[in-house]
Design a binder for these strands. Structure first.
Length: 198
DNA sequence: TAGGTGATCTTG
DNA sequence: AAGATCACCTAT
């Protein structure tokens, strides 16, 4: 039985709440019949109307940001620093450009495949800790941009019932260019989890 | 801690 | 058309 998160989870109008709620949920991809996934342990919220750190601020529509304006529940994948794909989840109603960046997962499924994709003989913590690392481990690239999370290539499932996390909040990482909005406590993480940044 | 890397956006 | 920037990672 599928435990995919329902559309209503993603259409929530409060992206900060969604970012917090995603901690403990499980992110999966299935590519060529190979299942990989892990528990989400670090997220950041971005708001396209109020938040200077958001690519879509202030309600900016470009080719890159266009998927952020779709109804919540699709993937927003973008390429940075000439090397890395970062995976985000679009939230809110159609026409509102909000998204949650997934910054780290704890491996759960398909560990061998994830190690192969990451190349190198990488230590456990570096396998899926960090937004570009988890994308590489899960095989995420630009071809997933705009895919529905209710479909079967990339999706999110409810938390495992037997595990609960203490959730911490802090400022977001790498958004100093956003001035005072860099001070917003919109990063969430599972306290004590080793896959969380720094 | 510095350098790699190229898409994306802004300026002119 | 050109230049600056960038929600990062890896190796020194």
């Amino acid at each position: 039985m599928s435990q995919k998160l329902p559309l209503s989870f993603y259409t929530n109008e409060n992206v900060v709440e969604v970012a917090r709620n995603l901690i403990g949920c499980r992110l999966y991809t299935q590519l060529g019949g190979v299942l990989t996934g892990g528990i989400i342990v670090e997220t950041e919220a971005y708001n396209g109307r109020t938040d200077k750190a958001c690519h879509a601020f202030p309600e900016k529509r470009t080719e890159r940001t266009s998927v952020m304006y779709e109804q919540g529940g699709v993937a927003y994948v973008y390429f940075v620093y000439g090397m890395h794909y970062l995976f985000n989840i679009v939230t809110h109603k159609k026409g509102f450009a909000d998204a949650v960046l997934i910054r780290a997962i704890e491996p759960l499924e398909g560990v061998e495949e994830m190690m192969l994709r990451r190349g190198k003989n990488v230590s456990s913590k570096l396998l899926t800790g960090g937004p570009a690392r988890l994308s590489e481990a899960l095989g995420i690239d630009k071809s997933m941009n705009g895919l529905s999370l209710l479909d079967s290539t990339v999706w999110v499932e409810e938390p495992l019932p037997q595990i609960s996390y203490k959730i911490g909040a802090s400022t977001r990482i790498g958004v100093d260019y956003a001035g005072e909005d860099a001070l917003l406590p919109w990063r969430f993480y599972a306290i004590g989890n080793k896959f969380v940044s720094k």
